Simulated scan of single mutants.
Amino acid sequence: MKIAVLKCDEPNTGKFIGSEGRIIEIKKGRYILNDTSHPLYSDKELYFKRIYCLEFKNKKIYFLNYYGNTEHPVKGIHIGLTKWQNHKFFWIQNKHWLQKEENIRYLVNVLFLILGAYIAIKNIK
């Protein structure tokens, strides 16, 4: 999945003016910028973070750290993801809510509950 890097209008304003022209390629567990691979998560922590207070053209803004470096939180890039790209991003990283076993079990239980209620109502008539 390829995404454009966002460019800030001025530092610390939270305003974006569009893409810088740089493109990153997101793969499982990493992203590639200028032929350099940067990790997105480790076993214990994530190296990307959604910034809820920022918005650009109805996109969800994420901050990706360079080289998985969490000591310097200002070193990284911002990307904007549409709703579809956001789901695809989490699906590639195996972090989507549909990929968790407890959520799949919950959906199956709800499906059986609805099916049982339908059969019960159909047999009443």
Rank of each mutant, 00 (worst) to 15 (best):
I24H: 07
R50Q: 12
K125Q: 09
T13Y: 10
E71Q: 11
K57V: 02
K49G: 00
Y41F: 14
G68Q: 09
I114H: 09
Y31T: 04
K122I: 05
E25P: 05
N103S: 07
E55T: 01
P11M: 11
L6V: 02
C53S: 12
Y67M: 11
A4Y: 02
K44Q: 14
K2C: 01
A4I: 01
L115C: 13
K59V: 00
E25T: 13
Y31C: 06
N12M: 12
Y106E: 14
V5M: 02
I61K: 05
G80P: 04
M1I: 06
I79W: 00
Y118K: 15
K125H: 09
N12F: 13
Q93M: 11
H87Q: 12
I61G: 05
R30N: 12
V110I: 15
F16P: 00
L40I: 08
I114Y: 10
Y62K: 00
N109A: 14
K60T: 03
F90Y: 15
Q99S: 11
T13W: 11
N123T: 13
R50F: 06
K44V: 13
N69C: 09
P73M: 13
K7F: 07
L98D: 10
F16Y: 11
E102P: 02
N34R: 10
G14F: 06
W91E: 12
D9Q: 11
V110F: 08
V5H: 01
E20D: 05
H78L: 07
V74E: 15
K83R: 12
L54Y: 15
F89Y: 12
I17H: 08
F90W: 15
E71T: 13
K15F: 10
M1G: 14
K57C: 03
N123D: 15
I77H: 02
I79D: 02
T36G: 03
K57D: 04
W91F: 14
K95Q: 15
F48Y: 12
I104G: 05
I3K: 00
K44C: 11
L33N: 10
F90C: 06
T36H: 14
Y47L: 05
V108G: 04
Y67Q: 13
H38F: 11
P11G: 10
K122L: 03
F112I: 12
T82H: 01
L64Y: 08
N103G: 07
F63Y: 07
V74R: 13
H72V: 10
C8F: 06
T82K: 03
H78P: 02
Y52V: 04
E102N: 08
M1C: 07
P73N: 14
N69F: 02
H72S: 09
T70G: 01
F16I: 04
Q93H: 06
I51S: 02
F89N: 07
N12L: 14
L64W: 03
Y62G: 01
R105V: 14
G76P: 01
E55L: 01
K83F: 04
G18K: 06
I24Y: 06
L111F: 10
Y66K: 07
T13D: 14
R22G: 04
K59D: 00
I77Q: 05
D43H: 11
V74G: 15
N86Q: 13
I3C: 01
W97V: 13
Y47C: 07
R105C: 10
I124P: 02
R105P: 04
K88W: 13
Y62A: 01
S42I: 03
F89W: 09
R105E: 15
A117G: 11
H78N: 08
H72A: 09
G18V: 04
Y41G: 01
D43M: 13
I114D: 10
P39V: 03
D9T: 09
E10A: 09
K27M: 04
